[in-house]
């Protein structure tokens, strides 16, 4: 990606230090590091309750080298609104530095579900901030419950795959498009498959005046039931199967950031994850559900292409 020199970035202090207590191999701290890596101005971070918040601020220690505030679960959008509003006044008065960027982090539970209203309000009011959803598709801090970001057929602890019900019965909500409907200047979706994409998108989001939103698919090895070392491979499959399209929406214009040359079937993405193993159990396969999932992916992809063309 143009303008980003990795060697230069190694000299920069990272806003999230080592010594945090996230699980070994968790993708969330990686997403945070990469996200904030190329942001040049000082950053103030607000975090929604979740694994990231809890594990980075185990009192009396904090892994945040930048100012950080956590209020509660459902209100990162409102919290950062207040901080940003205060900055507008206090920088006018010369009490605070003029150039400060505001970034909120929330998991999918805190963003798709309980925090959606607070986020929507902050977007509508046009605060100058970037909201990053680290989306592992469920409630991991409480032990892998389903959220409205959990994909259909996934085995979560509140949508368990049982002898009668084959995991979650509902499709995931398309939050990226819900956010896009707020008509904000910048919206993007990505995953950890290509670090430079995430680094560049967040840099762009932060540098765009007004609200911006980045939805990052981040595996939770415990919920997805994958080897933590394999998370980058799984992210790559999410992008290549078109399960998780990598794109951005600038001033309402959709642009694909990554178009897989040889898309892989959804099945390849599902098979490597234990949370779908019930679909592939010998003698009790549910290939109908796999086919349905593929049809959903195809339909969503076509819709996205139309938006990109339009």
């Amino acid at each position: 990606m143009a303008g980003i020199d990795l060697k230069e970035l190694t000299k920069k202090q990272n806003p999230l230090t080592e010594g945090h207590r996230m699980c070994p191999g968790c993708g969330a701290p990686t997403a945070v590091r990469q996200a904030l890596m190329a942001v040049e101005d000082p950053v103030v971070v607000v975090g929604a309750t979740g694994c990231l918040e809890v594990s980075t601020t185990v009192y009396p220690y904090s892994a945040w080298r930048v100012p950080f505030m956590h209020v509660a679960f459902e209100n990162a959008g409102a919290g950062i609104s207040g901080v940003e509003a205060a900055h507008r006044v206090l920088s006018r008065k010369g009490v605070a530095r003029e150039k400060i960027k505001f970034v909120a982090f929330g998991g999918d539970g805190g963003t798709y579900d309980i925090g959606l209203q607070s986020l929507s309000g902050a977007l509508e009011r046009g605060h100058d901030f970037t909201y990053i959803c680290y989306n592992n598709q469920g409630y991991m801090n409480t032990g892998a419950q389903r959220s409205s970001a959990t994909p259909i057929s996934a085995n979560a602890t509140t949508s368990p795959a049982g002898s009668v019900i084959p995991g979650k019965l509902q499709r995931a909500k398309n939050l990226t498009e819900i956010v896009t409907a707020h008509d904000i200047p910048y919206v993007a979706q990505t995953t950890l498959h290509d670090p430079m994409d995430l680094i560049a998108k967040v840099k762009r989001a932060v540098e765009t005046p007004g609200p911006a939103f980045v939805n990052v698919l981040v595996p939770c090895p415990l919920f997805w039931k994958i080897d933590s070392a394999d998370q980058m491979k799984v992210c790559k499959l999410a992008a290549e199967s078109r399960f998780w399209p990598v794109y951005e929406v600038t001033e309402g214009k959709h642009v694909l950031s990554y178009k897989p040359k040889n898309p892989v079937p959804l099945e390849d993405f599902l098979r490597v994850q234990g949370r779908y193993s019930h679909l592939f159990k010998k003698g009790r396969e549910r290939m109908d559900l796999v086919a349905q999932g593929q049809a959903d992916v195809d339909r969503e992809w076509e819709r996205l292409l139309k938006k990109c063309a339009g």
């Binding site: 607000v46 505030m69 209020v71 509660a72 459902e74 209100n75 959008g77 409102a78 919290g79 950062i80 609104s81 207040g82 901080v83 509003a85 205060a86 900055h87 507008r88 006044v89 206090l90 009490v95 605070a96 209203q117 607070s118 929507s120 309000g121 509508e124 009011r125």
Partner: peptide, 24 residues
């Protein structure tokens, strides 16, 4: 002053906390 016309009381008090902690 900055007047933040929030979308709920929950967000009102949360924004107040964020602003107050910021030094406002």
């Amino acid at each position: 002053s900055e007047y933040v016309a929030v979308e709920s009381e929950h967000s009102a008090i949360t924004a107040c906390v964020g602003a107050s902690v910021s030094g406002a």
